[in-house]
C-alpha cells in the first residue's frame, strides 16, 4: 500500500507539486496520468526516495520514505523514465548486479530465471545491454524493478518509444503484475492508462485534478450526453427546434453526408433521443441516423488540464476507494 499525503515540492521559487495526496491499495494498478511537465516524475521520484519532498509524506507498506528510507525502498521496484541500464553489461550480469544491490535472499538462479521468463528477456540473457533494441531495454528495465519481488512496482512511462506490439506486451505485463503487486503506472498516453489501470489519478500543474476508478471517471467528470442526429429537412428550423428541447445545452449543425441530410451534434444533461424523435416525426423531418457519442478519456483529460489555474483545485473529483 502507498499513502501519499500533501506532497509539496519546490525547486527554488518554483512550486512543482502542490498538496498531492492519493492512496494506492494492495494489488491495485493505478494509472498516473498527466501532460508532460505536470509533476508525474517528480511525484514518483519522491515516492521512491530519489528526491525529497519540501512538505508532506510518502509511506510505502507502512514505512515513511524519509524517516525509514532503507525499509521503504526494500518494498519498491522502480523503473525510472530513462531505464537505468549499464550498456557494457550483459542482461544476466546486470540482473545479477541488481540482485546483489538489493540484497535479495531468494534463490538467485531460480529468481532471476523467473523474472527473465515473465519479462520475456530469457533469449537475450547473454547479450550486451548496449546492443539491445529499445523494447528489450525497456523490458530489462522492468525486470530490474521485479528483482527481489518487491510489493510495490512503480513504472514511470514504461511504454515511451515502443512500437504498438511492444506496448501491448508491456500492458499485458503490467496487468499481470497487478495480480500480486501494488502498481503505479505513469503515462501521458490516455488509452494506455485506461487499458491497464483499476484507477486513474490525473495530475496537472502539480495538482491532483481527478482520482477515480477507471470505469467511473467519465461519468463523474462529465455528466453530459452527446448524440449525433442525421436529419433531412430545413437546417435552420431543425436547429431551432432542437435547441428548444428541455435539457439540451448545445446544438451544432455539421455538413450532411447523404440524402441532403444535415448532421446535428446535440449535447444534453439527459437522454433526449425520444424527444428529438417526437419533434422530427411531428414536423415530418426524416431521421436517417442516430449515434450516441461517449465522452472519451481524451476529452476528460483535456477538460481537466485546460482549466484555468484558479479553478483546478475546486475541480478535483474523487469518490471513496474500495480498498483505500
Amino acid at each position: 500500500m502507498i499513502e501519499i499525503k500533501n506532497l509539496v515540492k519546490r525547486f527554488g521559487d518554483k512550486l512543482v507539486l502542490s498538496n498531492v495526496s492519493f492512496t494506492v491499495g494492495d494489488n491495485e494498478i493505478v494509472g498516473f496520468l498527466g501532460p508532460n511537465g505536470a509533476g508525474k516524475s517528480t511525484t514518483l521520484n519522491i515516492v521512491t526516495g530519489y528526491l525529497s519532498a519540501t512538505e508532506g509524506t510518502a509511506v510505502i507498506e507502512g514505512c515513511d520514505i524519509l524517516e525509514d528510507p532503507q525499509n521503504a525502498r526494500a518494498h519498491i521496484g522502480f523503473l525510472p523514465e530513462i531505464p537505468p541500464l549499464y550498456p557494457d553489461m550483459t542482461v544476466a550480469e546486470y540482473l545479477s548486479f541488481i540482485y546483489d544491490l538489493k540484497g535479495t535472499t531468494l534463490n538467485r538462479e531460480k529468481h532471476l530465471e523467473e523474472i527473465a521468463e515473465v519479462t520475456r528477456i530469457a533469449d537475450v540473457g547473454q547479450r550486451l545491454i548496449g546492443n539491445l533494441s529499445k523494447g528489450y531495454k525497456q523490458r530489462v528495465g522492468i525486470a530490474q524493478a521485479l528483482v527481489g519481488n518487491p510489493k510495490v512496482i512503480i513504472l514511470d512511462e514504461p511504454t515511451v518509444g515502443l512500437d504498438p506490439r511492444q506496448i501491448i506486451e508491456i500492458r499485458n505485463l503490467v496487468r499481470m503484475l497487478g495480480r500480486d503487486h501494488t502498481v503505479i503506472f505513469s503515462s501521458h498516453i490516455l488509452s494506455e492508462v485506461q487499458a491497464v489501470s483499476d484507477r486513474i489519478v490525473i495530475i496537472n500543474k502539480g495538482q491532483i485534478v481527478a482520482d477515480e476508478k477507471t470505469e467511473e471517471i467519465s461519468r463523474v467528470v462529465d455528466g453530459r450526453r452527446r448524440f449525433t442526429f442525421s436529419i433531412c429537412g430545413p437546417q435552420k428550423e431543425i436547429y431551432a427546434a432542437l435547441k428548444q428541447i428541455p435539457g439540451v445545452t448545445y446544438v451544432e449543425a455539421l455538413a450532411g453526408h447523404e440524402l441532403d441530410s444535415t448532421q446535428f451534434v446535440v449535447e444534453s444533461q439527459t437522454d433526449v433521443r425520444k424527444a428529438v424523435f417526437g419533434i422530427l416525426a411531428a414536423n415530418d423531418w426524416p431521421l436517417i441516423g442516430v449515434e450516441a457519442m461517449g465522452v472519451n478519456l481524451e476529452e476528460i483529460f483535456i477538460s481537466l488540464v485546460d482549466k484555468p489555474d484558479g479553478k483546478q483545485a475546486g475541480r478535483r473529483i474523487t469518490t471513496p476507494k474500495a480498498n483505500a
Partner: peptide, 14 residues
C-alpha cells in the same frame, strides 16, 4: 549521464 545514478540512489544502499 546514463541515468543509472537513479538506480543507485533509490536502492537500499546509503
Amino acid at each position: 549521464k546514463q541515468g543509472t545514478e537513479q538506480l543507485l540512489l533509490t536502492s537500499r544502499v546509503p
